[in-house]
Amino acid sequence: MQTETAENLAPEERDLLDWIVAEAERRGNVVIQVPRDDKGSGYCFTACVWALHQVPEAVVIGLPEHMAPILLDAYVDRAATGEPFTPGHVYDDFFEGASVTFERVALGHYPEYFGCAFLVYPDGDFPAVQIIVATPDGKWPWSEDAPEGFAEWQPVLTESGRPESWTPGIDGP
């Protein structure tokens, strides 16, 4: 696994990188949780998945704290064994009663949503997907009848802030 060289890192960054690598080697991935703050929703992302499995790193925004790591671990387990995940396709088998879809993350969102992954990938050269979760009644952040504030709670991490790998209602949810 190619990572940032030790001489370029502050001691706390070196410690964090060592922990990330050790956890990834132990578990097959690392899930980093970032709590909600006054700027937005909490989110979780993976690190080392691309390095270990050649599977895109993933982020999920706005899920309850206990659910996001479960979703990311399930994604990694399934993707690492060869299951493909296509942007715009709806998957109903991650959580009972909640559909998910995938979208590619625009590079401009990497620093904010994959911060410490840059310790593993110093040049930012890794693919990433966002796992987007519908409301229990099937509303997506871009749905006209989505709950008020849902698009802000679970922003879509593309350049436009809307799905770009498919057209909602035509070839995607």
Rank of each mutant, 00 (worst) to 15 (best):
I61E: 00
T5V: 13
V55Y: 01
Y75F: 13
D18I: 01
A6L: 09
E159R: 12
E13K: 14
L119H: 09
I32V: 15
R162D: 03
V21A: 12
V21D: 06
A6E: 15
E152W: 02
S41V: 01
L107I: 07
L52W: 00
L72M: 01
W50D: 15
M67R: 11
P163E: 02
A146V: 07
E12R: 12
V59T: 13
Q54N: 15
A117D: 06
P147C: 07
V133A: 10
T167E: 14
M1Y: 06
D123A: 13
E83Q: 14
P136Q: 09
P84T: 10
A24W: 03
K39N: 11
F85Q: 05
D77G: 03
I170F: 14
E144V: 13
Y110G: 05
E103C: 02
G82F: 03
R26C: 06
V34A: 04
I70E: 15
E103R: 01
A68C: 10
W153Y: 11
F102D: 01
A74Q: 15
Y91N: 08
S143R: 09
G161N: 09
P127E: 11
Q2E: 13
D92T: 12
G88F: 08
E83S: 08
D15V: 05
P136M: 08
V30H: 00
P87A: 06
R78C: 04
F85N: 06
W153L: 11
I32W: 04
Y91I: 06
E83W: 04
F95A: 02
M1C: 05
K139D: 10
Y91Q: 06
T158V: 12
P122S: 07
D15Y: 01
I132W: 14
A58G: 05
E65Y: 08
W19I: 13
C116E: 14
F118P: 03
G169V: 00
R36H: 09
T81E: 14
A58F: 05
E13R: 10
L16I: 12
M1V: 08
G42L: 11
F85C: 05
W142C: 03
L71G: 00
S165C: 13
L17E: 13
T135L: 08
I32K: 11
G88V: 08
A51V: 03
H53P: 04
G124L: 04
V31S: 02
Q2I: 13
V133Q: 11
G169S: 01
R162K: 05
Y75V: 01
N8V: 02
L107M: 09
R26G: 05
Q2V: 15
D73K: 07
I20M: 13
C48Q: 07
W166Q: 02
W140T: 04
V21M: 14
Y43K: 01
T86L: 05
G28R: 10
G172L: 10
V60D: 07
